[in-house]
């Protein structure tokens, strides 16, 4: 599996550390349903069989956090973008 790092080019996934599902978002700690929301945030996952958006940290390279889109059925990687672009876009909406 090679991850196309936007800064370093395609690199073997050994250089990266996996951090799981990139679609979960830390909920508000003060909301009325905070407890249930945190349970979902920490524990439950869609765990899709197919396209999965996931976090990888380029530890053996540029130290960028990436959001990688990968097919869990065949490990085919569709693309990778810096995580901050994804997360700041989320914050803006």
């Amino acid at each position: 599996m090679r991850i196309p790092c936007p800064h370093c080019g395609p690199r073997t996934h050994e250089e990266f550390t996996y951090y799981g599902d990139a679609t979960v978002r830390r909920p508000s700690a003060t909301g009325p349903d905070a407890e249930a929301a945190f349970y979902d945030y920490v524990y439950t996952r869609d765990n899709p069989c197919g396209l999965h958006r996931e976090l990888w940290f380029h530890q053996g390279g540029c130290h960028e956090w990436l959001v990688v889109e990968r097919d869990t059925r065949n490990h085919d990687i569709k693309g990778a973008v810096p995580a901050r672009s994804v997360f700041s876009a989320d914050d803006a909406t």
Binding site: M1, T12, H13, Y18, C49, H52, E54, T72, H75
Partner: peptide, 13 residues
Amino acid sequence: DGYNSYAQRGNLP
């Protein structure tokens, strides 16, 4: 292998 997967085959590392 360390990442989510439904493929019943792994990678070389």
